[in-house]
Design a protein around this nucleic acid. Structure first.
Length: 466
RNA sequence: GUCCCCAUCGUCUAGCUCGGUCCAGGACACCGGCCUUUCACGCCGAUAACAGGGGUUCAAAUCCCCUUGGGGACGCCA
């Protein structure tokens, strides 16, 4: 049997961490078995759905590399299909019209809650045989006795007493379908065989199973993955900071790092930690999914990201860093220079943004270079001035600015004045970079180039009071 | 409140299906040390968990029950 999965986000928000992980799992499940992965936009709530969010979700999916095979389908364009099904349900006696006002229903729920019972609609319109009319919703006629049992792909057998359910609405008074109806109809019609979704949908499953049965459609397999929690162990939400997957792009995370981290949140394959998308395709299986909620850990995400930064080619990283650098510099940096700078930071930066920020001194003109006052004060004194001036002459005399040549030249100077490298390292660094932290000095000088090195040495000398 | 689900280091987790090989393994973080021109990287090392209580059994992290704790759901949202 061919597997068909889907990811059905609601365009009422961005593609967030939890949604992205669900999408990933569904993508992997389908692709691993040569099946199809469908993207469907659940915008039946016209009041809260926006095209901008749909676009944002698509952008997020693309950034992560989660290519869908079908869709995106828009539920808002399928109203007629849902209505056909509502009519079928009405005709077969599985549904009925109800004219209770929202206030009346609220009151019922309130009473039930006060009595220590589960808040439910009491079914008072069940046998009234109401026809269509304004302000009338359609409710599903939930069986009054029985159990619904299903075998969850991740949690095993789950059972519900049908008495926990009430006659839920399947079509609004304005004629639009409710989620429960729309998902079932679409999943059935689109041939979805496996529904992997968040835990928060677990309680919807019995209702949906009832709908499948009433409609005479075959049931898919359901699987509910636990929620992703914030550091406070509460459901991850905006309170916990960046939720949009694209926000992580802005923060300098690589999509492959995001995918890798997300995959490991709630899923494991032995002790393995690093997975490319290809490896995930090969190793993913629902058996590896965990049953308990997991906490989103920025530290580990960052570590995964630093791993990919270290192992990616400078060619891959350079354009991404340039993109981040542009707004910081006010203009696009020289791509070739970026390519030379990136390797110096691959083991030093944990995010691309960090890399861009740390490397700005390579790109700003010497006159605009910011010198850290504290650094200048502690490292640029009278003695430093002498060394820097002398070093400038030494360096002016060589044409080969390769790392070994620079090492040799500086080494010879140090020998002549019998000083250890330590004596000039920090002054040199401050003079060249404006601060006390940078990649290795010789690499830095090599990339900076002769002209700018001499320029900065001269400029730095002017900062030292004589 | 009612119902559903869950429960191994601070965090992600392996182990649980087929109880012994687990005085519980890996990773991140944290803390030490080494390396060293700064910062990183790298390497070495340390601290750290089977929620509690009952069973079953020769033997339980692994099976059963209860308690506690956590999460989710109870919408004319999805």
């Amino acid at each position: 049997m061919s597997i068909v999965t889907r990811f059905p986000p609601s365009p009422t928000g961005y593609l967030h961490i939890g949604g992205a992980r669900t999408a990933l799992f569904n993508f992997l499940l389908a692709r691993k078995h040569g099946g199809r992965f469908i993207l469907r936009i659940e915008d039946t709530d016209q009041a809260r759905s926006t095209p901008e969010m749909t676009q944002a979700i698509l952008d997020g999916m693309r950034w992560l590399g989660l290519a869908w095979d079908e869709g995106p389908y828009l539920q808002s364009e399928r109203t007629a299909i849902y209505n056909d099904h509502v009519e079928k349900l009405l005709a077969s006696g599985h549904a009925y019209y109800c004219d209770c006002s929202p206030e009346e229903v609220d009151a019922m729920r309130e009473r039930a809650r006060a009595a220590g019972l589960k808040p439910k609609y009491d079914g008072r319109c069940r046998e009234r045989n109401l026809g269509p009319g304004p302000d009338r919703v359609v409710r599903f006629k939930t069986p009054q006795t029985g159990k619904i049992v299903f075998d969850d792909m991740v949690k095993g057998t789950i059972a519900w007493d049908v008495q926990e359910l009430d006659d839920f609405i399947i079509r609004r008074a304005d004629g639009s379908p409710i989620y429960q109806l729309a998902v079932v109809v679409d999943d059935a019609l689109m041939g979805v065989t496996h529904v992997l979704r968040g835990d928060d949908h677990q309680s919807n499953t019995p209702k949906q199973i009832l709908l499948y049965e009433a409609l005479g459609y075959p049931l898919p397999r359901f699987g509910h993955v636990p929620m992703i929690l914030g550091p406070d162990k509460k459901k991850l939400s905006k309170r916990h900071g960046a939720m949009s997957v694209m926000a992580y792009k802005e923060m300098g995370f690589l999509p492959e790092a995001m995918v890798n981290y997300l995959a490991r949140l709630g899923w494991a394959h032995g002790d393995d930690e690093i997975f490319s998308l290809e490896e995930l395709l090969e190793k993913f299986s629902v058996e590896g999914l965990g049953r308990s909620p997991s906490v989103f850990d920025m530290h580990k995400l960052t570590w995964v990201n630093s791993h990919y930064i270290k192992t990616s080619s400078p060619e891959r990283l350079a354009p991404l860093v340039a993109e981040l650098l542009t707004p910081m510099l006010g203009c696009a940096p020289d791509e070739d220079l970026v390519r030379q700078v990136v390797p110096l930071y691959q083991s030093r930066a944990k995010t691309l943004r960090e890399m861009a920020e740390a490397a700005t001194f390579f790109f700003v003109p010497t006159v605009d270079l910011t010198y850290d006052a504290k650094a200048v004060e502690t490292h640029l004194g009278a003695e430093a001035r002498q060394h820097l001036t002398a070093l400038r002459e030494v360096l002016a005399g060589i044409t080969d600015f390769s790392v070994p040549a620079l090492e040799a030249a500086v080494g010879a100077y140090l020998n002549a004045v019998s000083k250890p490298f330590k004596a000039i390292a920090q002054p040199l660094r401050v003079a060249l970079t404006g601060g006390t932290v940078s990649p290795g000095l010789f690499e830095t000088m090599a990339v900076l180039g002769k002209d700018r090195v001499l320029e900065r040495l001269q400029h730095a000398a002017t900062l030292i009071p004589s």
